[in-house]
C-alpha cells in the first residue's frame, strides 16, 4: 500500500469516527438531559423505548423524519431551508481544531488526534462561534413570524454581548500558554490546569459558554413562555431536528473547549488521554444540564446588564491582572 494512501485512509477514518461519535453523543445527550432533568424533578424521565429508555433518541429520530415538513407561506423559502443546516455545520466544523488526545502511533504513522492543528486554533473557534449566530438569526428572520423575529433579535444581541467576554476570557489563557494552538494550550497545562491558575477567567468563560449555547439561565432567544419557540417557532420535522442537534453539538463543542482551555484537556493520571478527555467533556455537559435544572431564566434587561456591566469589566480586569502577574514573575 503506498504511503499517501495510508495517510489518506487514516484521515478519512478519523473524520468518520469523529463525525459518528459526535452525532451519537449529541443524540444521547438529549436523552441524558431528559433523564437528569427528570431525576431533578423527581420523575424517572423517558423509560419506555428500550431498556431504561436507551432507544429514545432513535424513536425521536424516526418521529422527526416522518413529520410533515412545513414551510410558512410568507417565509423566505431558501433561507428558511438553509438556516438549520448552517447552524449544524458551524457547530460541526468547530470540532476540527479540538485535540482530544495525545498523538497516537498507528501502522508506524504518527496520527495526531486532532483533525487539523491550526496555529490559530483559538481564533478559529471564536470565528466559528461568532458565525453560529447566523443559523439562528436567518432562521428566525426567514420564518416571517413575530415570535421568530423577536427570538432572533434577542439571540443576536445576546450572542454578540457574550462573545466579547468569552473572547476576553481566553486572552489570559493565551498569555499563559504563549500560543494560539489548542494542542500547545493543552501541553501548557500538564502540571496545573488553567482553571486553578486563573479561576476568574474560568468562571467568565463558563458563564459566557452557557450564554453562547442559549441554554437555560440565558435561553432568551427561545424563551418558551414568552416567544412560543423563539427562533424555531415555525420549524418542524427534521429542520427542527437539525436546530436541536446543533444545540447539543454546540454543548459538546463548548464542553470540549472548556476542557481544552481550562481543565487540562487530555492530561490526567493513569487513564489514557482520550478517556480523560471524554470524562471531562461529559462532566461539563452534565454540569450544563444541572445548571438548566437549577437556575431560573434571567430577564432580558438583567441579561444585558450582567453581560455588559459585570462580565465585560471583570474580564478586562482579569486580562490586565494576568498580564501584570506574568510581567512580575518574569522579573
Amino acid at each position: 500500500m503506498p504511503e499517501w494512501l495510508v495517510i489518506l485512509l487514516l484521515i478519512v477514518a478519523k473524520l468518520g469516527l469523529i463525525f459518528m461519535v459526535l452525532l451519537t453523543l449529541a443524540a444521547y445527550l438529549v436523552l441524558a438531559e431528559r433523564k437528569i432533568l427528570g431525576r431533578i424533578q423527581l420523575r424517572p424521565g423517558p423509560n419506555r423505548v428500550g431498556p431504561f429508555g436507551t432507544m429514545q433518541p432513535w424513536a425521536d429520530l424516526i418521529k422527526l423524519l416522518t413529520k410533515e415538513d412545513f414551510i410558512p407561506a410568507q417565509a423566505d423559502r431558501w433561507l428558511f431551508m438553509l438556516a438549520p443546516g448552517l447552524a449544524a455545520v458551524t457547530a460541526l466544523l468547530t470540532f476540527a481544531v479540538v485535540p482530544f488526545g495525545p498523538p497516537l502511533s498507528l501502522f508506524g504513522h504518527q496520527v495526531p488526534l486532532v483533525v487539523c492543528d491550526l496555529n490559530i486554533g483559538v481564533l478559529f473557534f471564536l470565528g466559528l462561534s461568532s458565525l453560529a449566530v447566523y443559523g439562528m438569526a436567518l432562521g428566525g428572520w426567514a420564518s416571517n413570524s413575530k415570535y421568530s423575529l423577536l427570538g432572533a433579535i434577542r439571540g443576536l444581541s445576546q450572542l454578540i454581548s457574550y462573545e466579547l467576554s468569552m473572547g476576553l476570557a481566553l486572552v489570559p489563557v493565551v498569555m499563559l500558554a504563549r500560543s494560539f494552538s489548542l494542542t500547545d494550550i493543552v501541553m501548557a497545562q500538564s502540571a496545573v490546569p488553567f482553571a486553578l491558575v486563573n479561576p476568574l477567567a474560568f468562571l467568565i468563560f463558563l458563564i459566557s459558554a452557557v450564554a453562547e449555547s442559549k441554554r437555560i439561565p440565558f435561553d432568551l432567544p427561545e424563551a418558551e413562555n414568552e416567544l412560543v419557540g423563539g427562533f424555531h417557532t415555525e420549524y418542524s420535522g427534521m429542520r427542527f431536528g437539525l436546530f436541536f442537534v446543533a444545540e447539543y453539538l454546540n454543548l459538546i463543542i463548548l464542553g470540549s473547549m472548556l476542557t481544552v482551555f481550562f481543565l487540562g484537556g487530555w492530561m490526567g493520571p493513569f487513564l489514557p488521554g482520550v478517556v480523560w478527555f471524554s470524562i471531562k467533556v461529559l462532566f461539563v455537559c452534565f454540569f450544563f444540564i444541572w445548571v438548566r435544572g437549577t437556575l431560573p431564566r434571567l430577564r432580558y434587561d438583567q441579561l444585558m446588564h450582567f453581560g455588559w456591566k459585570i462580565l465585560l469589566p471583570l474580564s478586562l480586569l482579569n486580562v490586565i491582572l494576568t498580564g501584570a502577574f506574568l510581567l512580575w514573575r518574569q522579573g
Partner: peptide, 10 residues
Amino acid sequence: TLRNMFRPTV
C-alpha cells in the same frame, strides 16, 4: 437539585 437526583421518584 443534586440531592433531588438521588431521591426516589414520585
